[in-house]
Design a protein around this nucleic acid. Structure first.
Length: 621
DNA sequence: ATAGGGTTAG
């Protein structure tokens, strides 16, 4: 169009002008600065260790090896790519590192949660002649707080004041965090009171400090006094009430908020989930104007924590169907734990494949949850495969596989892995020993069990908990050494609880020991007068022995307690969902097919030589 | 310089 053509000369003129300015800028910068900028932007966009090496070579060939500006950037990128040891190697080769390089090293260690290293390196810096600057102190103070180094923290506080950083708002805020985190709320308040300029972050830190010390009234006072309240501060107050379990106060504040972000909604959502209010959690989730991965994980995790495992699976499927937020590693872990509880092996396998093709292959949490899921679903071989494929393992990895093997009749493999675990340098904890004792129980290794029990105390200084005594009672009782078991219970350093007596009672049925069974029930009635399962247990023992009068007597005694035993419930996975059924259950539309399949399975078991008086299908057997 | 998630147990 003509009008546009009219503009073209102006446009050309403008372009020329812009180019001229750019050229002048270029000319004003010395070539050295230009190269520096180039390296900084190269480093900024560096995403892989391989690329980092290439850039490093070029830095060296251009003679920038000791350039503080570039080196500090380089160290930071190393830390982000989890190559902090490499960064340190390089740092140690610099003859006189500048403050930027020191700070980058501190930040790098802090990023990798090596707070001790930060402090060690800081003391090295003090013996050089480089002076800390305003970015140094926040990192150092934060590290002091993280490792609870109160004395060092106070010293650094002094150094900061001497260095003239009293009025620095960043220094003030981290000081408040440090003191409050160490429980020194008075010292924190002193810093807060002496601050020259208190911004909203400082107010938030101070209020968080009061919340941490459970001083909600003081926190609320400051909140009401704060000259400015941003959404972070509001969220902090709301989560403070939640931590104290005061959901009503939290909700009131949430409703008063001038503007809420996703974080505000998620905070309330998690609050309801943790305070066992699944319904409020669901309602809030539906009302949310925007949902991110934490919202979904909040709801799914809320279901899981409150044992609503069917809802975990349903919500996970809904999340995939809606498709706007993708599950992350935490989502998969929650879903896998629900699969483990429900025996939902098909969904579990699906999640396994999903994890592998969505970049969660090497994730430690996902690996641990997979091991547990396969073991709980009875496919121990797959659990072992996952275990073997894992590059990094932690204590939980070992505990999970050891316990999985032990509870599935592979006690000797469990004990072998226990040796491997020690060789790998992992220190066993109390949970490890529960798996080990369980392995001994299932193999009838009574003496080994006792020596592991001893080793736990002598070699690892673990104080046995009631769970461990429970394992020992089980070890003796299942081996038929009921008198020893009873004596062990008498000599325990703590009061035996219901689980201990129930273990004894269970073994009494196998070994038909009436006297001990009656004693166990007596104790159980004292401890759990409302639990009808205990009566049923003893009644079954009488039944096994044909003492029907006693069975009838117990039935009356149980009726007199006024409680009925809930029928045991089994779960099976049928076509992509889990179905529950009870003994003699007639509710399922395909009950005919199900019972006929069960009869077939029973026949198969019998024909392979499986004999058990516990095999009571009650129908057609 | 402020904030959020997950796995093991008698």
């Amino acid at each position: 169009p003509p009008s546009l053509r009219h503009c073209i000369p102006h446009y050309i003129e403008l372009t020329v002008k812009i180019e001229k300015i750019a050229l002048i800028n270029l000319a004003q910068k010395p070539p050295q600065r230009l190269l520096e900028d180039k390296f900084i932007s190269l480093l900024q966009s560096c995403k892989t260790p391989k690329r980092l090496r290439q850039i490093q070579t070029r830095i060296i060939t251009h003679g920038f090896k000791d350039n503080d500006y570039i080196t500090s950037r380089f160290i930071t990128v190393c830390a982000e790519l989890k190559k902090i040891a490499y960064a340190r190697q390089l740092f140690d080769q610099i003859p006189d590192p500048g403050i930027a390089s020191w700070n980058a090293m501190f930040r790098g260690y802090a990023l990798n949660e090596s707070y001790r290293e930060v402090l060690v390196l800081f003391s090295q810096m003090k013996s050089s002649d480089v002076m800390p600057n305003c970015s140094t102190f926040p990192i150092i103070l934060k590290s002091c707080g993280k490792v609870n180094a109160c004395v060092e923290g106070q010293e650094v506080h002094g150094v900061a004041i001497k260095g003239g950083f009293r009025a620095n708002p960043f220094v003030g805020t981290t000081l408040i965090d440090m003191y409050a985190g160490g429980g020194a709320i008075g010292a924190a308040y002193k810093v807060f009171g002496e601050m020259v300029e208190r911004n909203v972050v400082a107010w938030t830190s101070m209020i968080s400090g009061y919340i941490l010390c459970r001083k909600m009234v003081s926190a609320r006072c400051l909140f009401d006094l704060a000259p400015e309240r941003d959404v972070v501060l509001w969220n902090t107050m709301v989560s403070g009430y939640i931590e104290l379990g005061d959901m009503l106060a939290a909700r009131k504040l949430f409703d008063e908020m001038p503007n809420r972000d996703v974080m505000s909604w998620n905070t309330m959502l998690n609050g309801y989930a943790n305070n066992r209010d699944v319904e409020a959690c669901e309602k809030l989730f539906e009302e949310m104007p925007e949902r991110n991965i934490f919202s979904w994980n909040g709801l799914i995790g809320g279901y899981a924590r409150n044992e609503h495992f069917f809802e975990v699976m349903e919500t996970f499927k809904r999340m995939l169907a809606e498709g706007n937020v993708r599950p992350n590693d935490a989502t998969l872990v929650i879903v896998l734990s629900a699969c483990a509880r429900l025996g939902a092996i098909d969904l579990g396998k699906w999640v396994h494949l999903y994890a592998e093709s969505n970049g969660h292959k090497g994730n430690l949490y996902v690996g641990n949850a997979l091991i547990d899921m396969y073991a709980k679903c009875g496919i121990v071989e797959n659990a072992v495969d996952v275990f073997k494929s894992m590059g990094t393992k932690d204590l939980i990895t070992w505990n999970t596989i050891i316990n999985g093997l032990a509870t599935h009749g592979r006690g000797s493999d469990a004990l072998t892995l226990f040796c491997q675990m020690k060789n790998a340098g992992e220190i066993p904890d109390g949970i490890t020993f529960i798996g080990i004792l369980c392995a001994c129980t299932h193999m009838g290794l009574v003496e080994d069990g006792f020596s592991y029990f001893q080793s736990m105390v002598d070699d690892y200084s673990i104080v046995p908990q009631i769970e461990h005594y429970g394992c020992m009672v089980d070890l003796l009782a299942r081996a038929g050494l009921l008198d020893h078991a009873a004596e062990f219970v008498r000599k325990m350093p703590m009061e035996p609880d219901a689980i201990i007596w129930a273990a004894l009672l269970g073994a009494c049925r196998i070994y038909k020991n009436i006297e001990l069974a009656e004693l166990a029930l007596e104790r159980l009635i004292e401890l759990e007068p409302k639990n009808p399962a205990n009566f049923v247990m003893l009644s079954n023992i009488y039944g096994d022995l044909g003492r029907w009068k006693d069975v009838a007597r117990l039935k009356v005694a149980m009726r007199d307690t006024g409680f009925r035993k809930l029928p045991g419930c089994s779960l099976i996975e049928v076509n992509d969902s889990v179905v529950e059924f009870y003994c003699l259950d007639e509710r399922h539309p395909e009950r005919e097919e199900i019972y006929s399949a069960l009869r077939g399975l029973t026949k198969l078991l019998r024909s392979s030589g499986y004999e058990s008086d516990l095999l009571e299908l009650g129908q057609g057997t």
